[in-house]
Amino acid sequence: KTELCRTFSESGRCRYGAKCQFAHG
């Protein structure tokens, strides 16, 4: 995971959680 998850960085939450293909910091 190298690319940051935009949804997580903007809203602080992501519906994919740990399964998200993007990094959550």
Rank of each mutant, 00 (worst) to 15 (best):
K1S: 05
K1P: 00
K1R: 02
K1I: 11
K1F: 10
T2S: 08
T2P: 01
T2K: 03
T2E: 07
T2Q: 03
E3G: 05
E3F: 05
E3N: 09
E3V: 03
E3R: 04
E3K: 06
L4I: 09
L4M: 14
L4Q: 05
L4C: 10
C5V: 01
C5Q: 11
C5W: 00
C5D: 09
C5S: 05
C5R: 03
C5L: 03
C5E: 09
R6A: 11
R6T: 12
R6I: 09
R6G: 09
R6L: 07
T7C: 06
T7N: 14
T7H: 07
T7I: 10
T7S: 13
T7W: 06
T7G: 12
T7R: 09
F8R: 09
F8G: 12
F8P: 04
S9G: 05
S9R: 04
S9H: 03
S9Q: 02
S9N: 11
E10V: 03
E10K: 08
E10G: 07
E10R: 08
S11K: 13
S11E: 15
S11N: 13
S11I: 07
G12R: 01
G12L: 01
G12A: 06
G12D: 00
G12V: 02
G12W: 00
R13F: 15
R13Q: 15
R13L: 14
R13H: 15
R13D: 15
R13T: 15
R13P: 04
C14K: 06
C14V: 03
C14Q: 05
C14L: 00
R15S: 12
R15Y: 14
Y16S: 09
Y16F: 07
Y16L: 10
Y16H: 12
G17R: 00
G17A: 01
A18D: 15
A18H: 05
K19C: 04
K19R: 10
K19T: 15
K19V: 05
K19P: 11
K19N: 15
K19H: 10
K19D: 15
C20D: 03
C20V: 02
C20S: 04
C20L: 01
C20G: 04
Q21A: 09
F22H: 08
F22W: 08
F22Y: 13
F22I: 01
F22Q: 09
F22A: 12
A23P: 09
A23L: 09
A23C: 14
A23N: 08
A23M: 11
H24F: 00
H24I: 02
H24A: 04
H24Y: 00
G25F: 07
G25R: 10
G25L: 09
G25T: 10
G25Q: 05
